[in-house]
Nucleic acid binder design. Structure first.
Length: 155
DNA sequence: GCCAACGTTGGC
DNA sequence: GCCAACGTTGGC
């Protein structure tokens, strides 16, 4: 089992939005970066655990826990001409973009980006590296445990 | 709204 | 295959 951090803009889909979804599950559509796509396609497995991170908002940080709920499959928004994620170069026969489904696990007290940066044990986290823009990053098991135990108040 | 970083595109 | 231009990300 692996651990991940996945960024979402709360204006688009917050942890509360996820909790309010039918089956508390969303397709993680809109990823248009090959590295992030490849994580979903090649490395993620159903049951992997996910830090749900709010980005591009007043208080960026980890807002909850989710889990991977499906294997990767073609992202429907790439075929929708009206979608901002439409990709004219992708075809149903040869889809370029994939997504997994992500399911709500629990909301947590917000662990802010500033808080994460205060902990030496987390200094190597991918999401904390300068100019990190990847929307999906692996989380080291030790980092995951540290955050859950020390920053979320309970194990 | 600014701006630095970085991925992608496309001409050559 | 290089590389300049351009677009996007995301914290501040």
């Amino acid at each position: 089992m692996r651990y991940w951090l996945m960024k979402s803009e709360p204006d688009d889909c917050s942890i509360d939005d996820l909790a309010a979804m039918p089956k508390q599950t969303v397709p993680w559509y809109g990823v248009r970066n090959y590295q992030a796509r490849n994580f979903m396609r090649d490395v993620m497995k159903v049951g992997d655990q996910v830090f749900f991170y709010h980005s591009s908002c007043p208080e960026p940080g980890i807002a909850g826990v989710a889990r991977v709920a499906s294997p990767a499959y073609p992202d429907e928004t790439q075929f929708d001409e009206k979608s901002r994620f439409y990709d004219a170069k992708s075809t149903p026969e040869n889809p370029r973009w994939l997504n997994v489904d992500v399911a709500f696990v629990r909301k947590t007290p917000l662990v802010s980006l500033a808080e994460l940066r205060r902990h030496e044990a987390l200094a190597q986290m991918r999401v904390l590296q300068p100019a990190n823009r990847l929307s999906i990053t692996p989380v080291d098991p030790a980092e995951w445990q540290y955050i859950v135990k020390n920053l979320m108040g309970k194990a």
